[in-house]
Computed example of a mutant assay.
Amino acid sequence: MAPVRFGIPLYEYQALDVIGPLDVIAGTSVSLLKHYEEGGFIRKGFHENGLELEFYHIIETTHKSKPKNLELENLDVVATVTTADCPQIDYLLFGGPLPTYKLSDEMNAFIKDRVAKNEIKTIFTTCTGAAVLAQTGLLDGKRATINPGLLDLVPQMYPAVKWADKSEKVNWVIDGNIWTANGACTGMDMFAHWLIQQCGEELAKFQFGTLGYAPRGIDGKLLDL
């Protein structure tokens, strides 16, 4: 099985915007499921629907040796790769920083280059991460959502994006290969939806159970699993 590679640009996002969605899917790792099988916790062969997951936390070339402090939680995070040595990736995830955050020219160019090479299957954003992606121009003409507190402001900041109206009452928006969630926890729900598509309901339900987590649908109602 080919690895499923997630790239996460590293900047001052809210920790849960990234850690929450990644934890939703991390427990479906084939190696972890095999470990459970060997311990007798799950049936043999359960790992066959799992994923070979790889996570790459990406930073600018001049900053790799410096931990990035996520100021809201006072948490230091160290990048695993730079824009120069990041391998081919399948997915991008943008966590949400302060609305005033400006993407660096180097990271902006890296993102657009990887998309132009057609290697990115899906781009995910959580909370204000949609405003980061909007800075690349990749959201122009696309439907998207963002933290509800910014829905009145972002049309002025990024008028080329088709921002969801508050009246739509959707927790995430899918437009082609771009998925945008309006918060950290709704980002987890969005990833739960993706996980069900990738691994099937049985494995996804097992993973949700290990987290004590009950995912909701796009309308905010609990899923019937």
Rank of each mutant, 00 (worst) to 15 (best):
Y101D: 06
Q198P: 15
N171L: 05
E52K: 11
L51Q: 01
L133I: 09
E119N: 11
L139H: 14
E201Q: 14
L75N: 12
A2I: 14
C86M: 12
L211Y: 06
K162P: 02
E202Q: 12
T28C: 10
P9A: 06
I58T: 11
P159N: 01
T128V: 06
H57R: 13
L92D: 07
G217V: 00
S65W: 14
D85G: 03
V78R: 12
P97E: 09
D23Y: 10
T28M: 11
G27D: 02
V18N: 04
R143G: 09
G141L: 01
E48K: 09
L225H: 05
L211F: 02
V173R: 05
R216C: 14
A184V: 00
K117F: 03
P3E: 13
I146L: 09
A204S: 11
G137R: 08
M190A: 14
E54W: 00
L150K: 04
E12C: 08
H47V: 14
I58F: 09
W172Y: 09
L222Q: 15
L153D: 13
Y11G: 01
I59Y: 10
G7A: 12
I19S: 14
T122L: 06
K64W: 13
Q156G: 15
P21K: 02
Q198R: 08
Y91T: 01
S167I: 15
A192V: 03
E73I: 05
M157G: 07
P215I: 12
V161E: 00
L92Q: 00
Y13S: 01
S104M: 07
T122H: 13
Y213Q: 11
A26P: 11
A26Y: 02
P97Q: 06
C86D: 10
V81L: 09
A204I: 07
F6K: 04
Q14W: 04
Y11A: 05
T126G: 14
G183I: 00
D85Y: 00
I120L: 11
D90Y: 05
L10Y: 02
N171S: 00
I178M: 00
G217D: 11
A184H: 05
K117S: 12
T126V: 10
G45Y: 01
Q197K: 02
C127K: 01
D113C: 03
F94T: 14
P21T: 00
K102R: 08
C127Q: 00
I111C: 11
F208T: 05
T125H: 09
A15H: 09
F124S: 04
L33K: 01
G176I: 04
E201F: 09
E202F: 10
H57S: 10
E37A: 10
K34E: 03
V132E: 07
T186E: 06
V170L: 15
A134L: 05
G50Q: 03
S31L: 14
D140E: 02
L16M: 11
Q88W: 12
T100E: 05
C185A: 14
V170I: 15
E60P: 15
R43L: 02
A2K: 15
A214L: 15
W179T: 05
V18Y: 06
W163C: 08
Q197R: 03
G40M: 01
T186A: 08
N177S: 08
N171W: 03
D105A: 06
D219Q: 10
